[in-house]
Amino acid sequence: MSAPTHLAPGRLSAPRAAGPNARLHWWALALPALAFGLLLILLAGSGEAHAASGEGSTLVHVTERLLRVVG
């Protein structure tokens, strides 16, 4: 004997099972793509690394500020 299905208030139907027509949220594709792009930029710029001097590239400044905000 099966139990009746109870729906949460405000829901019109039961959740659909994941299948070939399942959809992703926009951030599920955007965040990995953004992370890949940032890592690619960091790797591409590492070949031109120089000893620390008074001047730095814009990418270095942006990365340093980002690390300060995150960390």
Rank of each mutant, 00 (worst) to 15 (best):
M1S: 15
M1T: 06
S2F: 06
A3V: 08
P4T: 11
P4M: 12
T5L: 07
T5A: 09
H6T: 12
L7G: 00
A8G: 06
P9N: 14
P9Y: 05
L12R: 13
L12Q: 14
S13H: 06
S13L: 05
S13T: 13
S13P: 01
A14R: 15
P15N: 03
A17R: 09
A17Y: 02
A18K: 10
P20Q: 05
N21L: 11
H25M: 13
H25F: 10
H25K: 12
W27T: 03
W27Q: 15
A28N: 10
A28G: 13
A28W: 13
A30N: 07
A30R: 14
L31H: 15
P32L: 08
P32T: 06
A33G: 04
A33T: 06
L34W: 12
A35E: 00
A35K: 05
F36G: 08
F36V: 10
L40D: 05
L40F: 12
I41S: 05
L42M: 09
L42P: 00
L43H: 04
A44Q: 06
G45C: 04
S46N: 08
S46W: 04
G47T: 09
A51D: 01
A52N: 01
A52C: 10
G54I: 05
G54H: 11
G54Q: 07
G54R: 12
E55M: 06
G56V: 03
S57K: 06
S57F: 01
T58F: 01
L59M: 02
L59F: 03
V60D: 13
V60K: 13
H61Q: 15
H61L: 07
T63L: 03
R65Q: 07
R65D: 08
L66R: 01
L66Q: 05
L67W: 10
R68L: 07
V69Q: 03
V69K: 05
V69F: 15
G71S: 14
